[in-house]
Design a protein around this nucleic acid. Structure first.
Length: 358
DNA sequence: TTCATGACCTC
DNA sequence: CCTTGTGTCATGAA
């Protein structure tokens, strides 16, 4: 199940006046008036070529002659609330239930509907209806023998769609789709596939395993081979909480001045610290993400002996790792900076004397 | 095995 | 002209 143009649809629900006209949810970076990118566009905006990931300034050009267009900043808290409501509903329709993002989840329904395809469509319809009635959002649902096919199916039927793939229809469905429709094949992989003559998912069937392995390595080769045949054995699995907590920001200007960068590090330290506090966890590994003025990404991380969660420690380690990097790259300026925590453990599971006192 | 790093994906 | 957050994987070193 995949919610349609999720962030923009949330905004349409908050303010129904916005419906029927181009609506863009933007990530403003704060460098200049319109710097930043489009996070989500509704379908009216997509008609003008606007899509996720393009610069805001470009979207404004595309929509120059559509003055009734609306550009809104992200309101992540609101989208999280909407997501929670939807997921609480969806969870009741499948078991196991796996949420993979704010806007998508997998439901194992084999035990619930068995081989009854009609039953599975009725179940999906009633889920769609309930989400629409209770939360007001539309979504798209793919029903298939495995997660890979279900995901691709839901993709091809949005918005507000429902698509069932029966076993006998798998190759007929998959083969004509562009290779980029395959999860895991994005901006970098499409040209590589293309150079091998692979434009459609079906073209993968022509390559033998030796050729796949030579080009992509054993692991990916196996994935592509199976995917082209519609094979995927990854079970639907409940997920716990995130295993990483991170925050990354864009600096007001490119800089290699640690004091200037520190003001941003302070901000994001507080943010990740508070999110750790909310979950009552300590971390063992802290990493910094460093994106240079040339848009090259670097990371540096350190695993500490005594796990911790203090604002102090986060900022201190973050600064130290950043300083070391800057020292190693004296001519490089940073554009964006981030901190990422991992290696979590619940704070109260620390061995403490009190556990042995009774 | 664990750790560090980077590449890539997605929205 | 280029955001943000989370995850997976490959690789190489310790």
């Amino acid at each position: 199940m995949d919610l349609d143009y999720f962030f923009a649809q949330c905004e349409e629900i908050r303010n129904p006046q916005l419906r029927g006209k181009p609506l863009l949810v933007c990530v403003y970076s704060g460098r200049s008036e319109d710097s930043g990118v489009i996070s989500t566009a509704n379908y009216e905006a997509r008609n003008f070529g606007v899509k996720s990931g393009i610069p805001i300034i470009t979207a404004k050009k595309y929509l120059k002659k559509v003055p009734e267009s609306t550009f809104l900043p992200m309101d992540r808290d609101m989208y999280s609330d909407m997501s929670e409501k939807v997921m609480a509903i969806a969870r009741e329709f499948g078991d196991p239930f796996e949420q993979t993002g704010l806007d998508e989840c997998y439901l194992e329904i084999t035990r619930i509907v068995g081989n009854d395809f009609e039953g599975s469509e009725d179940l999906a319809d009633s889920l769609k209806e309930k989400i629409r009635k209770v939360v007001g959002l539309t979504c798209s649902i793919g029903i298939a023998p495995n997660k890979l096919l279900a995901k691709i199916a839901s993709d091809t039927c949005k918005p507000d769609g429902l698509k069932l793939i029966k076993s006998k229809d798998i190759l007929g469905f998959l083969s004509p789709l562009s290779i980029g429709k395959l999860p895991g094949v994005g901006k970098k992989m499409v040209p590589r596939m293309s150079s091998l003559g692979v434009k459609k998912i079906g073209d993968l069937l022509e390559l033998d395993e030796e050729e796949l392995t030579r080009n992509f390595g054993k692991n990916q080769a196996l994935y592509f081979h199976n995917a082209a045949h519609g094979i995927d054995n990854v079970p639907v699995k409940e997920r716990g909480e995130a295993e990483q907590i991170g925050r990354i920001v864009t600096l007001k200007e490119d800089s290699n001045d640690i004091e200037f960068i520190k003001t941003s590090l302070e901000l994001i330290s507080v943010d990740v610290y508070e999110r750790c506090q909310e979950r009552g966890i300590t971390f063992r590994t802290l990493g910094v993400i460093l994106i240079t003025n040339e848009i090259k990404t670097h990371s540096r991380s350190r695993t500490i002996d005594s796990r911790s969660n203090s604002k102090q420690k986060i900022l201190e380690l973050g600064c130290e790792l950043t300083e070391i990097f800057l020292r190693e790259h004296p001519t490089t300026k940073l554009r964006r900076i981030g901190i990422k925590l991992s290696g979590f453990e619940s704070a109260d599971s620390q061995v403490s004397l009190s556990q042995f006192m009774d």
